[in-house]
Amino acid sequence: MTMPLPCRAALPAAGALLAGLLLAACTKAPAAALPKFAVDADRVMVAGLSSGAYMATQAHLALSDRIHGAALVAGGPYGCAGGKLEAALSTCMKGEPAIDVAALAARAAERAAKGEIAPLSNLAGDPVYVLHGRRDATVAEPVARAGAAFYERLRADHADLATLKVAWDGGRDFPHLLPTAQGTGGCESAAPYIGNCGFDAAGAIFNALYGAAPRPAPATAAGSLQAFDQRVFAPAGKATQLADQGRLYVPKACADGARCGVLVALHGCQQNVEAVGEAFVRDAGFNRWADAYDVIVLYPQTHASLAPLNPKACWDWWGYTGADYDTRDGAQVAWLANLIDGLRR
């Protein structure tokens, strides 16, 4: 899309947040409706980086009737922040004070019993993959370990979750980003928070969630990347604080009518399209593997705001959309449920 001249002239003089908001306003145009596909409901998974990892575990717990596995990169356990920003910035990023995994697991069971999240029994057999880099200075290792321990505690506490599969991968040398094995970017934690660290995280995520690849991934993605209108999926009476447009990657086989899985890929803070362009949706590595596995990739998009205070365009994992943010009634969780349902033919 060509940006109008007044917008292009104004952007260089704007601060980072203002520039992001201005860019969003300047590029608004009607996006296409989300197309529908033959979706294999048993192969709908979620993955996320940083705030996207926290959102991924929220979606997995709240929507386990729709989502059947989760990959968390540099994120912690469900319910960690407890609706408090100060807890999010301390306990849930630095691990100080330590995270009480047993209490979080008990709280999740209470919420499931009340119907605030889906029944925990839905998690039986689900794969969970937790990835953390040893050089991550943003999210401490004990926080990520607690993300894996949370699921392990659920498995220990509930006999019907004996088949819940939890994999911890914390021995790799990369900082706070999504590591790749392609591209020219250095392995440093800086925008767009994707770096060639000699490890294909996207491939590892696909393998953990979907099993061995039925065929090798192509060198470059061969499907189509599309924009779609996110606004139509907003739950009634809820302000989602999301961008107007999202992105969708469709392998050719899926476009031609094959029955395909779905991966919801959630970017981290300052990694949305408004902040880094299409770097995450094009270069994270998911699209190549989507071709190999016949999986559609949804790339939902947040946006930065001053009210509510979310200047880095993070997903809501501490309550800026409301106290029910990490339940089925939460604005972004309910929106995501509508999005997944809307993709199905």
Results as ranks from 00 to 15, higher is better:
A213W: 09
T321W: 05
R172A: 12
L89G: 10
V276G: 01
A204S: 14
A16S: 15
K114Q: 15
N196M: 01
G261S: 03
P127Q: 07
A307E: 13
E188W: 09
N207S: 15
A109Y: 09
L21E: 14
L178W: 14
Q270K: 12
F174N: 04
L164F: 00
P6D: 07
V281C: 12
A292Q: 10
C269E: 02
D40M: 03
D42M: 10
G52A: 01
A212G: 05
A87P: 05
E141N: 10
F150A: 05
G83A: 02
D40F: 00
L120M: 09
G268V: 05
N287S: 11
D329G: 15
P119F: 07
R153D: 10
P4D: 08
G52L: 01
V232L: 09
E152F: 04
L242D: 00
L209Q: 02
A239E: 13
A74P: 07
K238A: 06
G246M: 04
P142A: 11
D136G: 07
T57V: 12
D136H: 14
G125W: 08
R8M: 14
L22E: 12
Y78G: 02
K84R: 15
S51T: 15
L21N: 10
F233L: 03
D326V: 02
A304E: 10
A33V: 10
A304F: 06
D341N: 12
C314L: 00
A9V: 11
L5D: 14
E188H: 09
G330K: 08
Y293I: 03
H68W: 07
A202R: 04
V101T: 11
A106P: 09
A62S: 06
N122C: 13
A204E: 14
A331V: 06
N310I: 04
F206L: 08
M3Q: 13
A149N: 09
P127F: 01
F150M: 02
G147D: 12
D283Q: 15
K165F: 07
D324W: 00
D100N: 15
P300Q: 06
F150Q: 04
Y78S: 02
A221F: 03
D283W: 00
L11Y: 05
D136F: 11
R282F: 02
S51Y: 00
W168S: 14
G52F: 00
D244W: 03
D173A: 13
R111T: 11
R231W: 06
G211C: 01
L85I: 13
Y293T: 05
W317V: 12
P127L: 02
A253P: 09
L336K: 06
A118D: 11
M3H: 13
A25S: 14
